[in-house]
């Protein structure tokens, strides 16, 4: 069966509420439930949370640290499952998302909802009981924000959806930090701001070459609503704000020379790619694909460098200070 006919079949079943499908034994494997948790997003969340956890001052037993990361990962997975529950109709219309378990009919929407709520409750309660209440409160707020504010409130109604919705993706390093310290300070806020400002150029670069997909699903992404040219200008503007923010941890004395150097070099590449996106004529395919791909590497390099430099008791920093 082709993808198009599979999707058409699913849409008709979703529209009909298909009581027959509900009575059928579930064809979902454990792998489908893993896919429901958006494992790639989850891995980025865990990585940024690990950075926040590792660079925070103070000591946390490895087992407690592992528990914190597990809860953050499960919380992110819960948010992913709830997002797929709510967005099943539009996921079925987009090539990129049509093969997700709910649009494919492998998991019923109600099952995804129950799975997501159970995981969310588990993650928040365990984080609160075994780590600390502030980290649990931040995790609960993050899940709430991603579902209630972004998925339900913003995604289908405004081109600013991923700008404001970026708050949810930016929280994990703060949760990691508070898991260790039980409080907040400037450093985790800087990490939050980096991810927050990184999100729009990253997703708009994707939306530039997926415009038709988003338009078909009725999602008012910036290229759909404001057009290609305006989106490219917005990407440039946000990248101009992002790059200094990327360097800020070094300027604020929170990161070392290694981080500063990498933030400057990768920031310059981000600006170059954003400039190419701005100046590329139709179709904005190659430049936006390049920016989308590099933006992932950019964020990874910033956080990985911070992790290497400041993590594990600032081992690298202490060694370089001695030289």
């Amino acid at each position: 069966m082709s993808l198009i006919s599979e999707v058409a079949d699913l849409r008709s079943r979703l529209a009909a509420g298909s009581p027959l499908a509900l009575a059928e034994p579930s064809p979902a494997t454990a792998g489908d439930y893993v896919a429901l948790m958006k494992p790639r997003v989850m891995s980025l969340v865990v990585f940024t949370a690990l950075t926040g956890l590792a660079v925070a001052p103070g000591h946390l037993h490895a087992a407690v640290g592992f528990t914190a990361l597990l809860c953050i990962a499960v919380g992110a997975g819960a948010a992913g499952a709830l997002n797929m529950w709510y967005d099943a109709d539009i996921d079925a219309m987009m090539t990129r998302t049509a093969r997700r378990p709910v649009p494919m009919g492998r998991i019923q929407p109600g099952e995804a909802l129950a799975f997501g709520l159970t995981l969310a409750g588990f993650a928040v309660v365990v984080l609160g009981l075994l780590v600390n209440a502030l980290a649990a409160a931040l995790l609960a707020f993050t899940i709430f924000f991603y579902i209630a504010i972004y998925t339900v409130g913003l995604k289908r109604s405004t081109p600013q959806n991923i700008v404001i919705g970026g708050v949810a993706g930016a929280f994990p390093p703060m949760i990691g930090w508070t898991a260790v310290t039980g409080s907040l300070s400037l450093e985790p806020v800087l990490l939050f701001l980096i991810i927050f400002m990184w999100t729009p150029p990253h997703f708009w670069a994707l939306a530039l070459y997926r415009t038709e997909d988003y338009a078909r699903a009725g999602i008012p992404m910036l290229p759909v609503v404001a057009g290609d040219r305006s989106t490219r200008r917005h990407i440039m503007l946000y990248t101009l704000i992002l790059v200094p923010l990327g360097v800020a941890p070094w300027l604020a004395g929170f990161a070392g020379v290694l981080y500063g150097g990498i933030a400057l070099v990768t920031g310059a590449i981000m600006l170059t790619l954003a400039w190419q996106v701005l100046n590329e004529r139709h179709p904005a395919e190659r430049a936006s694909r390049n920016l989308f791909a590099f933006s992932i590497l950019y964020l990874f390099l910033l956080f990985a460098t911070l992790l290497v430099e400041r993590g594990w008791g600032g081992l690298i920093t202490r060694l370089t200070e001695r030289v």
Partner: peptide, 11 residues
């Protein structure tokens, strides 16, 4: 369906 159920049970 039996294989799917078994994988869910193991998970």
């Amino acid at each position: 369906q039996k294989r799917a159920r078994r994988s869910r049970s193991i998970a």
